[in-house]
Amino acid sequence: MHQEIQQVAQVEVPVERAKAAIALMADYQGRVTELSRIRREAIEEAAAAGMSQSEIATLLGVSRGRVGQLAAQGPPPERAFFGTDLMTISLGGKYEAGKSPEEAGEVVSRQDLGNFEHLRQLLATLKLEAQYEVIAPTGMVNLNRDNHIVVCGPRLSPIIAQVLEGDDNLRFQKDRAWHLVDLKSQEIYRSPMDEDGSAGDVGYLARLPRLDGKGTFIYIAGIHAIGANGVVHYLENHLAELYRDVRTRRFSTLISCRYDPKTQEILESKRVSPIYRHEA
């Protein structure tokens, strides 16, 4: 018997044994899901390299029809872009306006709550569950964990601002207004909201290093809050191609968007800078 299963079987208290069995089953199911994703990705890569289903079937020792089944089973390969387990989405918090610091509660913007819902739905298609947490107005957030997405501008979190300083390609800066700069091309990206009042914004999308050096997290922010919505819209529509480009490596890029000024719904999003890879 597998050692982990044997340890569960030896738990004396029945209810505790049942709880341990449930937890281990969930862990095993997560591994099965991720392995099925890896298998699907490997078959797709083999096919993209020119191998026929018959050739793949012969090498795997299964029928040609079974290869077709395996290629359709499991979550899509791009699931790995985000993680392998329950995702935590950290949203930047502010104190309620018009109240004293003692009375004010911590709130997030309507746009960020919308971002969570869109991300939750996207993650569900990848067989990933999601929960959200509010980053305290102090900006303190634990970045040293797996399966983590942060949606919070550098203005709200000095920790995030510090991590962003490590991007040698793209940067938030401020003069008369906040904007984004491509440090390689020296091109400046300002929000249309600040330039002529039109319904558009620019956002930043990246996979950045954790402070403990033991992993990464996905980071999303806009010049204005709705710019993050544009980044999420881009992920909803371009995740597969983005994953093919960057896999799970560190990167950063800029996304512009247009939105309906009445409904705040994102109408269009597109990449406006190169995808800068942070790793050799």
Rank of each mutant, 00 (worst) to 15 (best):
M1T: 11
A9M: 14
Q10R: 05
V11D: 07
E12T: 15
V13G: 15
E16Y: 13
E16A: 11
K19Y: 10
A20W: 04
A20N: 01
A23E: 12
A23M: 06
G30H: 09
G30L: 12
R31L: 13
T33A: 07
L35W: 12
S36A: 13
I38W: 11
E41Q: 00
A42N: 04
A42Y: 10
A42C: 10
A46Y: 08
A46L: 10
G50A: 01
M51K: 10
E55P: 03
I56S: 08
T58E: 15
L60F: 05
V67D: 00
L70K: 03
A71D: 08
P75V: 09
E78N: 02
F81V: 00
F81Q: 00
F82C: 06
A97S: 15
S109W: 05
G114T: 03
G114F: 01
E117P: 12
L119N: 10
K127E: 15
L128W: 05
E129R: 00
A130E: 04
Q131C: 06
E133R: 11
V134N: 05
I135E: 08
P137A: 00
M140Q: 15
N142E: 15
N142I: 12
L143G: 08
D146V: 11
N147V: 03
H148Q: 04
C152F: 01
P154L: 00
L156V: 02
P158R: 10
I159Q: 08
L180Q: 10
L180K: 10
L183S: 07
L183Y: 05
L183P: 01
L183T: 01
M193A: 15
M193V: 12
D201W: 03
A206N: 01
P209A: 00
L211S: 14
G213Y: 09
K214W: 10
I218Q: 08
H224E: 14
A225R: 11
G230Y: 02
G230C: 00
V232R: 09
V232T: 05
L239S: 08
L242Q: 03
T248S: 07
I255F: 03
T263Y: 03
T263I: 01
E265W: 13
V272K: 06
I275V: 07
I275E: 05
H278F: 08
